[in-house]
Simulated assay, not measured.
Amino acid sequence: MQFSVPKVHNGNNFYSVGEEGSQAVFTSIEKELWQAGIHTELNNAELCRVDTFKNIEPEEEFPAYAPLFGLLKMRRGVDRVYPESFLLKNTQQQFCVYDKIAEMKHRKVEVSHFPAQAMRFEHRCMSKGKVQAVFGFSKAGEMFKSGRYETVKKQQVQQWKNSLFSHSVEEVLSIGAGVLQGEMELFKQRYERNWFDRFLKSYGAYHLAQFAGAEVVRIALQNIEEEKTKVWRAEKLLLQAQREIELLKNAEGTSKTLGTLYLELKEKVCLN
């Protein structure tokens, strides 16, 4: 059987539940099973999957972090439950990051009393062996023995430190430099001698369109250029250059560096 401790306890799964509340949920479910004629002791149940999570309130909107997750080898759209999430996985465990508010809105949950922005970091142990390896136990009841619940919380943080947040800011910037190098190489292959001029023009157009918007640029051009054909050509050139860069990368939606975004998430997720 499977169930969500926060959902049973709170009626929704946004907020986490402490040790006492979690133990009450196990007791309540066991009672319901007995009433249904299923006589079992959940404390002796073997845990074949355990999901832990932490919500943070990010400084930027969720799409702004997409390039960062991409750099860290997280894949988007592969999680069937949350298709907009970013996922890093193997057969034993999964690390999933997604916009919790957007996910709740998708499920038609009223979100007015929740934070305006919330990013969820979920770690999923996908087998009994992995549960044992990470937490040091595999029976449900052992979670409530002396100090074990605190171990679960500490291991949740440690798993994120070992995976997504094992890099220094300098290493993340180095990874980002590698991505930029790849974009430059594509321009060099495509345009040969004048590739860097084309690269600068395309990036300039991309950021101009991001900062002001094509419509604002068009209005400004109309105010200083009487000939409509020239305005049309300039707007077409802007959009063409913008699309050229968009084919290579996701729109960032923020002026912050990848290092700044990474440090923000690392501090918020890995603080005990």
Rank of each mutant, 00 (worst) to 15 (best):
K256D: 12
N10H: 12
I245W: 02
I245E: 03
L180A: 06
F199L: 13
T257S: 15
G21C: 08
E41M: 02
N223W: 05
R107P: 01
A45F: 13
K105T: 04
K268Y: 05
N13Q: 07
E142P: 00
Y82A: 09
L68V: 03
A64V: 10
E227Y: 08
T40W: 02
G11W: 08
P67L: 06
C96T: 04
A234M: 14
F196K: 03
G178A: 01
L47E: 11
K128M: 12
K249R: 15
K161S: 12
A118D: 03
R107D: 13
L42K: 02
V50W: 13
F114R: 03
A234C: 10
V78D: 12
L87R: 09
S16V: 11
Y98A: 06
T260Y: 10
V157N: 01
V169Y: 09
N12P: 00
R148A: 15
L200Y: 03
N272S: 12
H106T: 12
E264H: 11
F187A: 07
F95D: 12
E185M: 09
K161E: 15
H9A: 07
L72H: 05
N162G: 12
T52V: 14
M143R: 02
F14T: 01
K105G: 06
V109E: 13
S22V: 02
D79E: 08
A212S: 10
